[in-house]
Write a protein that binds this DNA or RNA. Structure first.
Lengths: 168, 168
DNA sequence: CAACGAGTGTTTGGTCCCGAACAATATTTC
DNA sequence: GAAATATTGTTCGGGACCAAACACTCGTTG
């Protein structure tokens, strides 16, 4: 038992190390906790729901996007899933090998490629997504309804702010 | 201008597609916005601060951990950075090739390996981190002080809840 | 209608990333 | 103190990931 974690938290170590500097600590804790929470949640969902499906996190997200939006252009799927278009090509190759999605050329514009779920892909999402949502509920169990809504709305502000900044 | 984004948001599409199902939407929006915000922030920081340093996000996080904690065992660094120990081996190999970090065997226990920043690694963090913090402040600019603290504290609850669950 | 510019998805090269198998070392157990 | 067990970092295989280069297609402009 080394115990470094029980003795000193990261936030304490940061205070020791950076206490003298002129930094925006509120911003720092807000941002770093977003990242920590995101990693912890992803890890939790991978270990529980995705565990035995053979799907990776990104594979699931891509299928989720196609499921929600229906037949989609790859460009749209990549943006919605938050990955680069080159990455999507590889992910779709994997998902196609599982027969969960299908690529089809768009006859109206031969540059474009459409993506759809196969029947077994659709079936998978129908059984997987409720389990996924159940674990999402578990994740925020410690927050009451108001805190959940505040959390979502604060994060929406952050995302919108960054999207506006990116466009500029 | 395809405009699918201006016409229909993801949240609307989800409402259309999943409106009939018995799901915990509050949990869903809280969790999915954590993930979206995290990805947007990481992307923003990569594009601004890390842009011309040659450092990846993970490389930066690893150096940050070693900077904050001082000379550390790899096991500790991996956990703190939120990556697998096998991943850390590769990342350290990259950072060592840049001469930013250094590996040293622990004489007391020859299984263990200690990591330290080199002088140039230390110098890099001293100049990089204030810039990083400045962008963190930009990220949460739309939130007032109270919302920033609430955000951090809600996320801390989520992380702690998941850490407890993982141990069980 | 030819040439140019913009918009597609794919390929490529290098890194990240995990889980599992592994070799080396330390600790426990008898 | 020898054998069994546990711990630590590395290696390996396969997938994810991005930026940049690419090939192809469409729209526009002269």
């Amino acid at each position: 038992m080394t115990g470094h974690h029980t003795l000193r938290s990261t936030e304490e170590a940061v205070g020791d190390r950076l206490g003298g500097l002129n930094l925006d600590f509120e911003a720092m804790w807000a941002v770093s906790n977003i990242y920590r929470a995101s990693a912890a949640i992803r890890n939790h969902l991978e270990q529980t729901v995705l565990r035995d499906t053979g799907l990776t996190w990104t594979g699931f997200v891509v299928m989720w996007v196609v499921w929600i939006w229906g037949e989609s252009e790859t460009r749209h799927v990549a943006e919605e899933a938050g990955i680069a278009k080159g990455t999507l090509t590889g992910v779709l190759k994997t998902l196609e090998s599982y027969r969960y999605v299908q690529r089809m050329p768009n006859p109206a514009d031969r540059r474009r490629v459409m993506v759809t779920l196969t029947l077994s892909g659709e079936r998978l999402m129908r059984t997987l997504f409720p389990q996924f949502n159940q674990e999402e509920a578990f994740v925020v169990r410690e927050l009451d309804s108001e805190r959940r809504r505040d959390l979502a709305s604060s994060l929406r502000l952050v995302v919108q702010h960054l999207e506006r900044a990116e466009r500029a």
